[in-house]
């Protein structure tokens, strides 16, 4: 078959467009996380984990003041990572319902794991943690969380909070309520599956997962400024932690930044 030179270019264009349709759309990510004890606390009860190959990102905050908070956050994260296997993630690609289920299940397993350890040792009973998990599948980010950890999206200089806080202060607007009481968490009672959000990603988007030690200390404007000034995730995390410590560092601080370099 002969194609006249005049038609060659449009034909090639058409073929490449057709091929592109069938190529799975994958977001190219660049990510980093950082955690710090802060200035006031003695120990760091926050934990985070990131798996760039599977595109799983986790931040957990052990319940302050309770025994074993640090252990709870570590246990929850490792249980969630165990539940989120490569095979399960591959199978639920491009299927939001399956992704949501996978994440809910990971949270349930994390809850079981923490409860199991809490039941074995009287010193650990009552330990718990809040957790947020982001799973990037195809060109979408799936977020699940319990408690007052937050997920933010920075798009074209605008910071938007994706998650809602599960805390007494956020759910009931009456003034004077203590800020630090979470209404949902892993370990003590998880009566409900985690809250779920799905976010379409575009090139140059940034996702920020953080514990309350960051957002309690640093304003949205400062977060926006830090994320826009630093082009790479790693210095951005370091800058955010520095800001929280400058503001007082009352709690453990964890920041995890995911940068979408291309779709």
């Amino acid at each position: 078959m002969l194609i006249s030179p005049k038609l060659a270019r449009p034909t090639m264009h058409l073929i490449s467009r057709l091929l592109n349709r069938f190529r799975p759309k994958l977001a190219q990510l660049n990510s980093a996380g950082c955690t710090d004890t802060g200035i006031v606390r003695q120990a760091n009860e926050d934990s985070f984990a990131l798996d760039p190959a599977l595109k799983i990102f986790l931040v957990s905050d052990g319940m302050g003041g309770h025994t074993g908070g640090a252990l709870a956050s570590r246990l929850a994260i490792s249980a969630a990572l165990t539940a989120l296997t490569a095979k399960r993630i591959r199978k639920s690609r491009n299927n939001p319902v399956a992704c949501r289920h996978l994440l809910s299940q990971a949270f349930r397993q994390a809850n079981d794991e923490v409860l199991h350890h809490a039941g074995k040792d009287a010193n650990l009973s009552g330990m718990g943690c809040t957790m947020i998990c982001a799973l990037v599948s195809g060109e979408k980010a799936h977020l699940c969380h319990v408690g007052d950890v937050r997920g933010y999206l920075l798009r074209q200089g605008e910071l938007q909070q994706i998650t809602s806080d599960h805390s007494l202060a956020a759910e009931d607007n009456s003034p004077g309520l203590p800020k630090n009481i979470v209404t949902r968490c892993i370990g003590v009672t998880m009566e409900q599956d985690p809250e779920y959000h799905v976010q379409e990603l575009a090139a140059d988007d940034r996702l920020l997962l953080c514990s309350d030690g960051l957002w309690n200390m640093v304003s949205d404007e400062e977060i926006t400024a830090a994320l826009t000034q630093e082009s790479e995730p790693e210095p951005a995390c370091a800058r955010l932690i520095e800001l929280a410590n400058e503001a007082g560092g009352h709690d453990n601080i964890t920041a995890l930044v995911i940068q979408v370099s291309e779709i």
Partner: peptide
């Protein structure tokens, strides 16, 4: 279903 947001039905063991 109380407290569950997502339920899977199928052959999978999980």
């Amino acid at each position: 279903l109380k407290g569950r947001n997502s339920v899977k039905i199928g052959k999978d063991a999980n």
